[in-house]
Design a protein around this nucleic acid. Structure first.
Lengths: 244, 244
DNA sequence: GCAGTGTACCGTACGACGTACGAAGATCTA
DNA sequence: TAGATCTTCGTACGTCGTACGGTACACTGC
């Protein structure tokens, strides 16, 4: 039941760069970084579910079991991938908490769009690595001087991060579905609507129908994200106003 | 590359209750509903990742391949599970859009806590079933009379749903980690902090450390959820105020 | 300089997974 | 009643993560 703790410890040491090259044995032909990079490229191309140790090995031109001399297990590889991707986040820029927090949110949103597999990986509890921690430091620092106490600061950052992940999920689901099926949303609808027309009594859902009829004016993913972010920031602003 | 469309169509027909008992052949020993219920019980107990057709079959006392006479494939089984679980959501109650929307959010939050596997399943694009559609109708209806146009209504519901899912994910991650490792968070920290102390220079993260030192006052998951929901609702309220 | 030790590489094999396929038996229809 | 249809499920296949151990490489300490 309990995972092997030596695997977890070794994973943490890898994350934090605390491993050293062995002094004996054959020279290594790869590095952990190279393994992580290859895995990220594969996940970017095919998603996390399609990532396998055999595929990473093939991409690097080695045998699958070779990878285990660089990372202790697949879970640890994913944790390393997550932290490596988080290293791509820009430093937040702007004047005042609102602009800074918006910058945080946009950086995270863009990261998710670049690496959609992060959303699947983030569903698992991964150990915190150096990039994740420096990001967290930057995020919390956007709220310095707002009058919020520690608990509220943590909760606000959690709210924003949760919101961004949710919005990114919605956006990514559409993209992934199209990739998986090879059909655009319009093609899917064209194929499926006759079936749904047969199955669903649309008269039972008047508000849904009314909204769907207006769907030609719908926001794209980026607009949806921006809309929701403004709402979230408005809500936080109302909170901060009560603390000053 | 393209999934088998007959599987998808059959899945939709199952979702919407449009399948009929065959008139020939042996009497069925099970029903699709029974298969879905068994799968939900297993997912509730062990999570979605641990759900397999073999385990469902074992639970029902049949061979694994028997299940395929009831559901076309595992993906379709998961879609049926999702819609069945969504059938547990209560009708929103309250006076005015804010109370109604808060009720929507709480119902969804409680559902995720009862069936944490929903979060993993919701990451995949599942076809929409009758319970999902009636829920969507109810959600949209909470915003009737607010002056929001269709696009804004859709975006607001998406915001709230995305927020709830994000908050639930955070809460569930802690629970799942404890179940997976058999360790409470305190036990994990007790075991791991010596390793982290060795690896991490905490002085580089002053805001994180300051916040972590105050962590004894931290919110639990339910308080975190309620806090964030108020912020989200405040933000929506600011929006609605501009439309009236 | 060499024996002993530690490590890289990786083939093989195992258990687990989803599900294609087809044999055997049950039940209905014309 | 023969033929068609359907249920059940064993077998097998390809894929997955990784345990295990054999072979070769490279360092350490005597």
């Amino acid at each position: 039941m309990k995972p092997d703790t030596s695997t977890a410890v070794r994973g943490l040491e890898l994350l934090w760069g605390a491993t050293e090259r062995p002094s004996r044995g054959p020279k290594q032909g790869l590095t952990s970084d190279a393994v992580v990079r290859a895995a990220i490229e594969l996940a970017d191309a095919d998603g996390l579910a399609a990532l396998s140790m055999r595929k990473v090995a093939e991409r690097l031109g080695v045998g699958a079991m070779t990878l285990y001399t660089y990372v202790p297990a697949k879970d640890e590889l994913v944790a390393l991938m997550v932290d490596a991707a988080l290293g791509e986040r820009p430093v937040p820029v702007g004047e005042g908490w609102r602009e800074l927090l918006a910058s945080v949110a946009r950086g995270l949103w863009e990261l998710y769009l670049r690496h959609p597999w992060l959303l699947a990986a983030s569903s698992e509890r991964t150990p915190i690595g150096p990039n994740a921690l420096v990001n967290y430091e930057r995020e919390l620092s956007t709220l310095s001087g707002t009058g919020l106490d520690s608990t509220a600061m943590v909760s606000v950052i959690s709210l924003v991060a949760g919101y961004v992940a949710g919005a990114a999920r919605s956006a990514v689901q559409v993209i992934e579905e199209e990739r998986r099926t090879g059909q655009t949303r319009e093609e899917w609808w064209h194929q499926t609507s006759p079936v749904l027309d047969r199955l669903i009594d649309y008269a039972s859902y008047p508000t849904v129908v009314s909204v769907a009829d207006a769907d030609s004016h719908a926001h794209g993913p980026a607009e949806n994200f921006a809309f929701g972010l403004e709402r979230v920031l408005d809500g936080i602003e109302a909170l901060i106003a009560t603390r000053r």
